[in-house]
Design a protein around this nucleic acid. Sequence first.
DNA 1: AATTAGCACTTAACTAAAGAGATTGCTAAA
DNA 2: TTTAGCAATCTCTTTAGTTAAGTGCTAATT
Lengths: 345, 345
Amino acid sequence: MLSERQMMILRAVVRDFTNSGVPVGSKALAKQLPIHVSSATIRNEMAALEDQGLIRKTHSSSGRIPSVEGYRYYVDHLVKPDPLRPNDLNMIQSSLGGDFHKIDEIISQSATILSNLTSYTAFTLKPELKDSRLSGFRLVPLGHRQVMAILVTDSGDVENQTFDVTEAVTGEQLEAVVRLINDQLVGLTLPEVLQKLRTDIPAKITHYLQSPQGFLDIFGDVLTRAAQERFYVGGRLNLLNFSQDSDVDSLKALYSLIDKTDDIANVLGQPRDNISVQIGNEMTNDALRNYSLITATYDVNQHGRGMIAILGPTRMPYSRMLGLVGAFREELAKKLLDYYRYYDE
Amino acid sequence: MLSERQMMILRAVVRDFTNSGVPVGSKALAKQLPIHVSSATIRNEMAALEDQGLIRKTHSSSGRIPSVEGYRYYVDHLVKPDPLRPNDLNMIQSSLGGDFHKIDEIISQSATILSNLTSYTAFTLKPELKDSRLSGFRLVPLGHRQVMAILVTDSGDVENQTFDVTEAVTGEQLEAVVRLINDQLVGLTLPEVLQKLRTDIPAKITHYLQSPQGFLDIFGDVLTRAAQERFYVGGRLNLLNFSQDSDVDSLKALYSLIDKTDDIANVLGQPRDNISVQIGNEMTNDALRNYSLITATYDVNQHGRGMIAILGPTRMPYSRMLGLVGAFREELAKKLLDYYRYYDE
DNA sequence: AATTAGCACTTAACTAAAGAGATTGCTAAA
DNA sequence: TTTAGCAATCTCTTTAGTTAAGTGCTAATT
C-alpha cells in the first residue's frame, strides 16, 4: 500500500524519467515537488518504493527509474490522460476529413496519422470481421487465359486474385463453377467454407473442370487471405529511433514481428477494455522487452468494434499517449459512423 | 595509365578491403602478392596509385582503401565474376522450381532469393510494360453498393480496385460505362488513356451517370497504378546490417527511398548494359553515398526485358556479386521463358 | 634506373589513473 | 518523523602513456 506522498513521488519519477530518459535523484525531486521536505526524506520514501519493486537503480549510487511494476502502478492508478492539444485535434480532423471510397482507406490512413501524432509505430484494425460469412463469389475472365477470382464477405470485405488457366476454359465452365460455389457455400462462415473446400467440393467440381487443383488452390488462397485479420501499420521507421546501442539483431526481430500479420495479431490480442496498456515483459514476446503497447478499441455500433494501437519504448510519456489514443479512437469512430451513414442509407 | 604491377596491387587492395573492411598496408600486400618485391616497392606503387586518385588513406599513416574511382577502375578493368557455387545454383533452381500462377509471383520471389543469396537488398522488375496498351476494362458489381473496377493491359497486367458507389447504380448503367470505356479507349497506351480521361470522357460519361467524378477518380487511380512500373523488394532489413555508427537518419532516408516506387525507379534508371555497377556518389542520390548498386537486365525474347538489382555497401565483394547477378539473370530468364511457353501455346 | 633496408614520424586504439559530479545509505541530532 | 551531514559508490570525462601498424623519405644496393 502506498501513502499519498509515495504516490506523488512515484508519479514524479515516472514523469521525469519518461521525459528526460535520465534516472531521477532525490534532490531533484525535493526541489520539484509541491510538498516541503528534504532530499533525505525523499530518499527514505524512495527506498520504500524500491522495496516494493516499483522503482530501481541502474547502479548502486544512481538515481531511480521505474520498474515494469512501477509503470504498471502508474498507469493503473496515477496517470491522467493529457487533454488533446488543439493542434493535434486539427491534424486528426483534417487528415480524416477527406473523401474516402473504402473503409480500408480510412483505417490505413488512421495508422499513418496515429504514427505521426505519436512518432511511434501505429497499428489499426478495421471493425471486426471474424465470423463473417461468404456472401458472393465471382470469376471474371480477363482474356488471354487470365481469370480473376473475387470473394465477397457479408461484412463487405473483398479479396481477389488473378491467375492464369492452362487450358482454354470456357465461359460456361466458369459460370458453372461460380454457380456451384455460390449454391453450396454462400452463407457459411469462412472457416466452414475452407472446411468444405477440402471435403465436398473437389468431387463436385470435377463435373465442370478436368483439372481443378489449380483452381482450388487459388480459391483456398483468396479465402485464407480474407479470413485473416488485416492490420495496417504506420510509422514503421519510427522504431529506428529507439534502437539503443544500434542493436541490429533485436531490431530485425522486431521488424519481422511487425511484418507478419499472424504474429502481430497475436501480440495485439483480443480487444480488451476500451484502452489498455501492456508494458515491457508483460508481453510474452521477447522482442518487445523494451517496448510498451497501448491498444484501444473503437466502437461503431452495429458495425462492430475495431482496434488501434501504438508501439513505443517502455519509456514513453504515457499521459500524453493515452490522451492521444483516447481522442483518436473517438474521432475515428465518428468518421466511420459518418461513412456508414452515408453509404448505408 | 597503370602498369601491370599497379593493376595487380589495385586489384589486391580492393579484394582485401572488401573482404576484411580493414585498410590494406604495404607489408600485407608484399607478403601476399605473387611477385617478389619488398614492401618499400609496394609503397612506392601505392603512392602512385594514390596520386591517380584510385586509392586513399583513412588517416595520414593508415593503409589504403579504394576510392570510388578505384572501385570504378576495378569493376571496369580488373574484376572477373566468380563462378557460381554449386550450392547457390541449387538454391536458385529450387526456389524458382515451384509452380507459379502469375508472372508477378516469379518476379517477387526472385527478389527474395536474390536478397538471400547476397545478403543485401534486392530489387526486381518484371519484363517491361511501358507502352503497354489498355486491352480491357470491367466493372463488376459486388452487391451492397460495392463495385470492383478491373483494368487489363495487353501485356497481361491487371490492376483492380474496389469502391463504394453512393447512389444505387444499376447494372445497365455500369454496362454502359464499361462499353463506353472499351469503345473509346481500348488499344491506346496508358498515358493516352489518362489524357482522354481528362478531356473527352467526362462529357460523354454524363449520359450514363449523374455524378461521375467518383468513378473517374477511381478509374484514374487504377490507371496510374497500372502505368507505374512496379518493383519488388527483397531483404529490406539487410540494410540494417551496414548502418555504420547507428546513423539513424541516413537509414531512414534510405528506407523511404526504397519504399517510394517513383524514387527507386529513378535510382535504378533505364535498363542499360546487361550488367552495370553504380558506385557510391556516382548515384546522384545522397542517401546512397555509401552504397553500390548492381543492376542487370534479363531478356525474355519477344516478351521484353526486365531488370534485377542488388543494393549493398560500396564495400561489397564485387566479383562474387557479379557472378551471382549474372547467373541469376540467366536462370530467371530461363524460368520465365518456360512459363511463357507453358501459358502461351 | 629500379629496388630495398632502415628509420623517423604519424595515427588509432587500447589501458590506466585521476578527478569531477551525482547520488545513495546511514548515523546522529533536531 | 524529519533532517543535516558525510563516507562510500559509481559513472563519466580527461589526461597520459603504450603499443602496433603503417607511411614517406633517404641513402645504399642491385
